[in-house]
Computed example of a mutant assay.
Amino acid sequence: MFDFEKLDVYQKAKQFNKEIYSFLRNSKTIDSVSKNQLRRASLSIMLNIAEGSSIFSEPDRRNFFVISRGSAFECAAVFDFLKEETILTEEEFQQFYAKAEELFRMLFKMIQNLSNN
Rank of each mutant, 00 (worst) to 15 (best):
A13T: 00
A13F: 00
A13E: 00
K14H: 10
K14I: 06
Q15K: 09
Q15I: 14
Q15T: 10
Q15D: 11
K18I: 09
K18H: 15
K18T: 10
K18P: 04
E19I: 03
Y21D: 11
S22T: 12
L24F: 02
L24E: 04
L24D: 04
L24C: 03
R25Q: 14
R25C: 13
R25N: 15
R25P: 05
R25F: 12
N26W: 06
N26M: 08
S27C: 09
S27F: 05
S27D: 14
K28Q: 13
K28R: 14
K28Y: 13
T29G: 15
T29C: 13
T29F: 09
T29V: 13
I30G: 04
I30M: 10
I30S: 07
I30N: 06
D31W: 08
D31H: 08
D31G: 11
S32W: 11
V33W: 13
V33I: 14
V33Q: 15
S34H: 14
S34W: 09
S34C: 12
K35Y: 05
K35W: 05
K35M: 09
K35T: 04
K35Q: 13
K35V: 03
K35N: 12
N36R: 13
L38W: 01
L38T: 00
L38N: 01
R39A: 14
R39V: 06
R40N: 07
R40E: 10
A41N: 02
A41Y: 01
S42W: 04
L43C: 07
L43W: 04
L43R: 06
L43P: 00
S44Y: 02
S44I: 00
S44D: 05
S44P: 00
I45Y: 00
I45C: 01
I45D: 01
